[in-house]
Amino acid sequence: METTLAIVIGGLYAISFYLMLRRSMVKLILGLMLFSQAVNLLLFTAAGLTRGQPPIIPEGADALPVPFADPLPQALILTAIVISFGMIAFTLALTRRAHSSLETDDLDQLGRSERP
């Protein structure tokens, strides 16, 4: 399964890179969203996969039953998901604002325009 996921991650990276290199602002955002998914999956996979064993100590036991899924990357990814939500919201607002102020979708134009 790791192989499958590795290919999926590589594919997501490739598509997100391609999207980020576009001149359209919205495509850039789409690329960012895919990118954060890919990074999260990369973290998740690189830490090793364990089928169906959540890192939760069962009632009565005093340690995790082996094998358990690594809780640390999960904690990292959990925060990353929420952070990327904030980031996407911010870029959306930024794009929205830039579009309404500068009336262009072309990032190349954006670089050249001074404040209106």
Partner: peptide
């Protein structure tokens, strides 16, 4: 907005980068 040539280039770059990442994960 981009020319087809530009897009082919980007796609090629992205493909190579994706491959590198796949290998990196493995």
């Amino acid at each position: 907005l981009s020319s087809p040539r530009r897009r082919r280039w980007d796609a090629a770059f992205a493909g190579v980068a994706g491959l590198v990442i796949t290998l990196l994960v493995l």
